[in-house]
Design a protein around this nucleic acid. Structure first.
Lengths: 182, 182
DNA sequence: CACTTTAGGCTAACGACGTTAGCTCGTCAA
DNA sequence: TTGACGAGCTAACGTCGTTAGCCTAAAGTG
């Protein structure tokens, strides 16, 4: 959505989000959304062309929230640790939305202008301006989070320790061999 | 699936896999699977209790293949780099199956005994036995892969450089502070 | 050999889903 | 007063996963 949502659209997205967070993705049906607004399913198509567009609006809202959390965390001393904590805790607070945001290919034209950069900037800064290292750190955080949400780690794994180990390693570019840094 | 698949089950899984790799997840319908075997959809229920069980078998087959690729890669000198390459290339060769394998929570009782450990062992070994660091490395690889498949990196990002940066950082536990290593 | 069980097909049908077509009705500008 | 339009409605379609129930050929079994 390049342009802002109308009031009614925002209500619809809110309803969808409540269903999503309460009952997971398969609870988000057009009929259920409509019912929780007291209308009929086909009426939703007066506000969104299809379900995918509605979900894109949901995802976009998630990105904005997440970016805000990142910016807040980056104001900490020890920003990398704070960012990691923020990343993990936002995702575990909204697991279904996080999954929705990360599972499907990104439609950049439906995102508010600049969110992507706004979310990325604090990470790059925390990595001393090294964009490649920042991407690696982002991937690490996303990987930890997504594996945790998908219940992939063995039950006896110490996730806090794994986070610390990764953050420690990724913090300072420790210059083993000189390489292009983009 | 704790017990081995019957021949017919294996044929069904193969058909499903072909549909998945050719047309993505929404191409994998019970009717399409049945048609590509020359039977009717309800007949599939003589072999699998429901679609989810069928997909679990698909996922299990994927894990076995992936584990084999890891074991092969770990025989390289420079095993961490080889493992990362193997991880990325297996996933990009089978993107839909990889997504299916990683998106839903893992049902361990449907996996062949020991695959999980078999896939994890080479990574732990490549990380000098540090299990937390191995989990961090795994998360990094999964994160890079999943963000790449979901088209999350900006178009100008140098993914090879990001991979190198992460691997360099994660290779040796470089002992900043002493902490429990599980 | 006669009989029964069972594996593995089939058709018909159900309910939930996303979606379309087409109607109605109230609000508001010209 | 009238016309446009925003926003609701009902009815219905096609697709999906799935169930119920039938049929037939092969495999045991007395």
């Amino acid at each position: 959505m390049r342009e802002r949502l109308t009031g009614r659209q925002a209500e619809i997205v809110d309803a969808a989000r409540e269903l999503l967070e309460a009952g997971g993705p398969e609870a988000v049906t057009m009929r259920a959304i409509a019912e929780s607004l007291g209308i009929q399913a086909p009426s939703l198509y007066k506000h969104f062309p299809d379900k995918e567009a509605l979900e894109s609006a949901l995802v976009a809202a998630g990105f904005v929230e997440q970016a805000e959390a990142f910016v807040a965390a980056s104001r900490s001393r020890n920003p990398l640790t704070a960012l990691a904590r923020a990343y993990r805790s936002w995702a575990t607070a909204h697991p279904h939305l996080y999954l929705l945001m990360t599972s499907r290919p990104l439609e950049r034209d439906r995102l508010p202008e600049g969110v992507e950069a706004a979310a990325a900037a604090p990470i790059v800064k925390a990595c001393g301006g090294d964009a490649d290292r920042a991407r690696a750190a982002w991937a690490f955080a996303h990987g930890m989070t997504s594996l945790e949400l998908a219940d992939r780690f063995p039950p006896d794994a110490d996730l806090d320790a794994a986070w610390r180990s990764g953050i420690d390693a990724l913090r300072a570019p420790h210059a083993t061999q000189p390489r292009s840094t983009t």
